[in-house]
Amino acid sequence: MSKTVKIALAGEGGQGVQSVAEIIAEAANEEGREALYIPNFGVEQRGGVSVAYLQIGDEPIGSPKFQTADIVVALSDRAVRRTKKYVGEETTFVYDTSIEGIEDDLPKNAARILAMPAIEVSKNELNPRVFNIIIMGAVIKATNVVSEDDAKAALEKKLGYKFEQNPSLRELNYNALSRGMELV
């Protein structure tokens, strides 16, 4: 039995962190593992920092939110500031290289801090639409919570109807996943 992996994903509304967390959680569930995903939500329907809390393990998950994550992924300056409280001595903190003005806000106590050019890769190599799938690749690589194949199967389940209409989207998403895995 492995320890439950705790993941916090944070970004601006529209960056797709909630769907990334949901797809990973569903992939883990499909593997027969225990998964729990809870979004943060408040009175605003839009705007504000969006945080997804995700836990995956082999035993029933305890409290839905947690104090310290194994991996924190922050995709905007506000997300960096919002999520550094989830960082502990064993936490990997991942942020996007394009975020400016956060040098002083990066957590000092993390086990590892990783800058990842996901925004740049999505713009220059792939398509900004698959930015969150790059993040998903990075998360599954960094945590090993689900295999690449199961992640693909979950993508197929979630986006299959779009892939049917436009098969090139499938390749684009799979490439984004692989590219994300290479970034960590």
Binding site: E26, I38, I61
Partner: peptide, 10 residues
């Protein structure tokens, strides 16, 4: 509660 309302699990 709101957590139970919104969280996903099996």
């Amino acid at each position: 509660d709101g957590y139970q309302a919104k969280l996903r699990e099996s």
